[in-house]
């Protein structure tokens, strides 16, 4: 198991170098010169050249990439072109917002989806089953910014229950908690839909297994069968899926963060793309990719702990 872990870690290295290279290349292919944007409308070519030199953008590309990679090894992602602040610090300042939002969204979707999926499975083909599964597939089908704007309109404006935007504080304070709700729902709906469908089908599958039939035949109560046996076994794929989803939530929060003015990493990178703030885009993407691959690694390991049939070799 330890060997497996180590090998997976080593595998990560080429992946991360690849991510660094691709994000570097794309950013430098984009038309638009950050020095030009900084200088603003009406700046002289000399000003732009001066800014370019100050930012090191006048050096050859491979040299810039080399500097970037060297810095990366030392945990230095360079400085933002816009704010002149260290990129790593800027990312850290925003990562909590993104990560905690993703966790909340995951929590929301688990709380909604698992009861829904289980109930739907036990009442297969009932009206409840049909409606909730239609709702789930609908949740997968709505553009998330539209959903967010609708939620904001109805729950923050028409009925003023939640603050419309911004992160009002840490999630353990009441004000902060309230500000988490609308963005987490918006972000979590597609995952909830996916998990509900998965829960339903895995519970159904487990219920058809021989040992459940045996338990039933032995006269075990239906509730015990469901909760003690079926749900426990059905949880394995659900947890795996939830872990993978969490990774996507981290990277996919971009739109939700923009709608709700959330001080997260995704929105920061988007504005950096528009501004051509190369170091921020590179650093931010690296950071998200790193989190994503680590999460997947952890899911794999958890998987092994929950399901002893899986062997690492």
């Amino acid at each position: 198991m330890f060997n497996y872990f180590l090998r997976r870690l080593i595998y990560l290295i080429p992946i991360l170098i690849g991510v660094a290279l691709i994000s570097f290349m794309i950013m430098h292919l984009i038309p638009g010169d950050p020095a030009r944007v900084i200088a603003g409308v009406g700046a002289s070519p000399e000003d732009v050249a001066a800014i370019r030199a100050r930012l090191g953008l006048d050096r050859p590309l491979h040299e810039q990439f080399g500097t970037f990679m060297l810095g990366l090894l030392q945990g230095d992602l360079g400085r933002s072109l816009r704010t002149r602040q260290p990129v790593l610090g800027e990312i850290q300042a925003r990562f909590f917002a993104t990560a905690s939002l993703a966790l909340f969204a995951m929590l929301f979707s688990i709380l909604i989806s698992i009861p829904l999926g289980v109930l739907a499975a036990t009442k297969q083909y009932s009206i409840f089953d049909n409606i909730s599964m239609l709702g789930a597939i609908g949740g997968l089908s709505a553009p998330s910014f539209w959903l967010g704007l609708m939620l904001m309109y109805y729950l923050a404006f028409a009925v003023q229950i939640f603050p419309p935007s911004g992160m009002a504080g840490m999630p353990w304070t009441l004000e902060g908690f309230k500000s988490y709700i609308l963005p987490s729902i918006t972000l979590g709906v597609p995952s909830a839909a996916m998990l509900a469908r998965l829960t339903r089908s895995s519970v159904l599958e487990v219920l058809r297994q021989d040992y459940i039939r045996t338990a039933r035949a032995k006269g075990t109560g239906e509730r015990v069968v469901l909760y003690r046996h079926a749900l426990k076994n059905a949880l394995i794929p659900i947890i795996t899926m939830a872990g993978i989803q969490l990774g996507y939530l981290l990277g996919g929060a971009v739109v939700v963060e923009t709608v709700f003015s959330w001080p997260g990493l995704g929105r920061y990178i988007v504005s950096a793309i528009h501004f051509r703030d190369f170091p921020v885009v590179q650093g931010g993407v690296m950071f998200l990719a790193l989190t994503f691959v680590f999460l997947n690694l952890i899911v794999d390991i958890l998987y092994g702990i929950i399901d002893p049939r899986i062997r690492y070799d």
Binding site: P14, L16, V19, L29, G251, V270, L288, A289
Partner: peptide
């Protein structure tokens, strides 16, 4: 498959966004 892993590790919308910014 390693290249595919790299592409998977890229945060989805951001990759698309950067690509469209690059291509116009």
């Amino acid at each position: 498959m390693r290249v595919m892993d790299i592409m998977m590790a890229f945060p989805g919308v951001l990759l698309a966004l950067a690509l469209v910014a690059a291509l116009g």
